[in-house]
Design a protein around this nucleic acid. Structure first.
Length: 504
RNA sequence: GUCUUGUUAGCUCAGCUGGUAGAGCACGUCACUUUUAAUGAUGUGGCCGAUGGUUCGAAUCCAUCACAGGACACCA
C-alpha cells in the first residue's frame, strides 16, 4: 500500500473531516491578489505608522505552511510561495465562529497550502506580517514534510524526490533559477548576434559529431534502430551548407557512458556555427559571451569555486604543445616523440594503451599534467589532427588543427574549431577513425557518408563551438556535482521499480 | 569499472567490547492572544536496507546483494 504510513492515514482522516465540514481539501478557488514578495515590498511603510497597522488595506495571499506556532487563542503561521516567506497572525476572534478551534487548530498543519486574507501589521518583534481575517485550505498535504530545521539533507532523497528538495531548500530553487537564466541569456546573446536557433534530430541513423557510445532505440514502423544523438554537430553543419550563416541549438545530448560528479547520461550543450569566421573569431565571441553572462548575472570577475578563485578578467591563450612544457613541466624533447612520451608516461607510473598515435599521446600528456592546472580561463589551441577528426587543418602545419578547448577551474568548458570543409580530407579522416574502430577503439567516430556528400556541395569556411551548459552552470553556482544543477539527475531504479519491471 | 563510507521512526541523528530500540523535530491530548526552530506537560510511533551465516542471543560480528555518497579510472 502506498498510503499505509500512520502519519499519512492520520492526515487523510483530517482531509475527510474537513470535507464533511464543508471545506474542500483540494479547492481550486484561489482568489490571490498578490505575491508574498510584492506584499512585503508594498507594505514596508507599515512600521513607520503609529499603530503599526493599516486595517484599510486588504490582501489575499497563498502559500504552503512551513512553520506553525499555536499559542492558545492565537497562532503564528509562516507560509511560503515562490516569491518568499510571510508570517501570518491568526487570532480566534478575527475568524468565523468555531473556525479557529474546530478547523484551523485541529485539521490544518505544516505542509498544507492555504489562502489567507487580511491586513498588514508589524509585530512586537518588528516583523511585517499579515493579520488574518479569513483563512481557507486550498490543498491538503497528506504526506508530512521533512523536519523543519534540518530539512531534507539525504542526497538520495533530494535527487529522487526533487520536489521535496525544492520545497525544503530555498538555495536549491536559487540554483535552478540561475540555470534557467544562463540558458535564457545564452539564447538572447546569440540571437542578438544574428544567430538563428534551430532544432535538429535527436534520433540519428548514425551517432556522429563526437567520440562516444550512443543509446540505441528502435523505430517499429521502419524496422530499424536509431541512435539518440551524441552531438548535433553534423546536422548543424548541413544547415551551414544549406545557406544559413549563423545557427545555434541548445539541447540535450545522450551518451551511454559512466555517471559521476561531472557526467550524466543526458546533458545540455549549446553548439553554434558561424560562416565566414575562424576559431580566432570564436575566441573573441567566447570572451564576449562570458562578459555578457557575468554582467547580467551580476557576478564578480573573481569568482570563487570550491577552494579555488577563478579570475574571469584573465583569459589566456596557449598552444597545446607549448602548454605541455610551460604548464605541465614535460621536457620539450619529449613532446614530439611517440616513444619518448610513452617512456615519460611510464616513468610517471602511467600506462597507455598500445598503438596510440602521436596526437593521442600528446592528448594524454595534456590530460595528465596540464588540464587540472588551468584555473583561470585558458584557451588551449592547435590540437593535433589525430584527435580532431572534424576540425580544419592549419595552413602552416597540416599536423595540427585550427581548434581550441576552453578550460576553467581545471575543467573543459568549451570545444571549438574552424570546421573541416574539404570533403576529401573529411572522408579520409572518417576512414582513419574507421580503422581505429577496427583495431578496438569503440569510441572512434562513425563513418558518415551522407555528411561527406553534403560537404561535397561546398560548405562555406565556418567556425563552430560547443559549450557544456551543465558544467558552466556548476561553475557559476559553485556546485561540484552535475546532479546539483540537473532538476532530475539520472538515478538507478530502486528495488521496487526493478521488481515491477520484471513483472511486466 | 575499482576502492571506500553509509543505509536505524515521516525527517535529522544517537545506539560503546553482542543481552528485549533511543533523542529532537513532526503527530495526538492538555495549557497558553505578539511568537521567531515559540514554550511547558503528556502520549503514540520501528521488518534497525535485503538475504544468508556465526551465536543461547545480532541494529551491533561475518558473507553476499541492492541503493546512495566520496575518491580514483574513462569520458563532455
Amino acid at each position: 500500500m502506498v498510503f499505509d504510513n500512520k502519519f499519512i492515514q492520520q492526515r487523510i482522516e483530517k482531509a475527510n473531516i474537513l470535507k464533511e465540514a464543508g471545506f474542500n481539501p483540494y479547492s481550486n478557488n484561489s482568489k490571490r491578489n498578490t505575491t508574498i514578495e510584492k506584499y512585503l515590498n508594498v507594505n514596508s511603510d507599515i512600521e513607520d505608522k503609529e499603530d503599526k497597522r493599516d486595517e484599510n488595506r486588504h490582501y489575499i495571499v497563498n502559500g504552503r505552511i512551513k512553520l506553525f506556532r499555536i499559542m492558545g487563542k492565537a497562532s503564528f503561521v509562516k507560509i511560503e510561495d515562490e516569491s518568499g516567506m510571510l508570517q501570518v497572525y491568526v487570532a480566534r476572534d478575527n475568524l468565523a465562529e468555531g473556525f479557529y478551534n474546530d478547523i484551523f487548530k485541529k485539521h490544518i498543519e505544516v505542509g498544507d497550502i492555504i489562502e489567507v486574507a487580511g491586513y498588514p501589521f508589524v509585530t512586537g518583534k518588528g516583523e511585517l506580517s499579515l493579520h488574518a481575517t479569513e483563512l481557507n485550505l486550498l490543498t491538503k498535504a497528506i504526506s508530512p514534510l521533512p523536519e523543519k530545521f534540518h530539512g531534507v539533507t539525504d542526497k538520495e532523497i533530494r535527487y529522487r524526490k526533487r520536489y521535496l528538495d525544492l520545497i525544503m531548500n530555498a538555495d536549491v530553487r536559487k540554483t535552478f533559477k540561475i540555470r534557467s537564466k544562463v540558458i535564457s541569456l545564452t539564447r538572447r546573446f546569440f540571437e542578438d548576434k544574428g544567430f538563428l536557433e534551430v532544432e535538429t534530430p535527436m534520433m540519428h541513423p548514425i551517432a556522429g559529431g563526437a567520440n562516444a557510445k550512443p543509446f540505441v532505440t528502435h523505430h517499429n514502423a521502419l524496422g530499424i534502430d536509431r541512435y539518440l544523438r551524441i552531438a548535433p554537430e553534423l546536422y548543424l553543419k548541413r544547415l551551414i551548407i544549406g545557406g544559413f550563416e549563423a545557427v545555434f541549438e541548445i539541447n540535450r545530448n545522450f551518451r551511454n557512458e559512466g555517471m559521476d560528479a561531472t557526467h550524466n547520461p543526458e546533458f545540455t550543450s549549446i553548439e553554434f556555427y558561424w560562416a565566414y569566421k575562424t576559431y580566432k573569431d570564436l575566441i573573441e565571441i567566447t570572451k564576449e559571451y562570458f562578459e555578457y553572462l557575468f554582467d547580467h548575472l551580476d557576478l564578480p570577475a573573481l569568482l570563487p569555486y570550491g577552494d579555488m578563485e577563478v579570475n574571469f578578467a584573465n583569459f589566456t591563450e596557449i598552444p597545446l604543445i607549448e602548454s605541455l612544457t610551460t604548464i605541465g613541466g614535460v621536457p620539450a624533447e619529449v613532446t614530439n616523440d611517440k616513444d619518448k612520451i610513452v617512456e615519460f608516461l611510464n616513468s610517471k607510473n602511467i600506462t597507455v594503451k598500445p598503438g596510440m598515435n602521436l596526437g593521442q599521446l600528446q592528448g594524454e600528456l595534456f590530460d595528465e599534467f596540464v588540464e587540472e592546472k588551468l584555473i583561470d580561463p585558458t584557451f588551449i589551441t592547435e590540437y593535433p589532427v589525430d584527435i580532431s577528426p572534424l576540425a580544419r587543418r592549419s595552413d602552416e602545419n597540416p599536423e595540427i588543427t585550427e581548434r581550441f578547448e576552453l578550460f576553467i577551474a581545471g575543467r573543459e568548458i568549451a570545444n571549438a574549431f574552424s570546421e573541416l570543409n574539404d570533403p576529401v580530407d573529411q572522408l579520409g579522416r572518417f576512414e582513419a577513425q574507421d580503422a581505429a574502430k577496427e583495431s578496438g577503439d569503440d569510441e572512434a567516430h562513425e563513418m558518415d557518408v551522407d555528411f561527406v556528400e553534403a560537404l561535397s556541395y561546398g560548405m562555406a569556411p565556418t567556425a563552430g563551438q560547443g559549450i557544456g551548459i551543465d558544467r558552466l552552470v556548476m561553475l557559476l553556482t559553485n556546485e561540484h556535482s552535475i546532479r546539483d544543477v540537473l532538476l532530475f539527475p539520472a538515478m538507478k531504479p530502486i528495488h521496487a521499480e526493478q521488481k515491477n519491471q520484471e513483472e511486466e
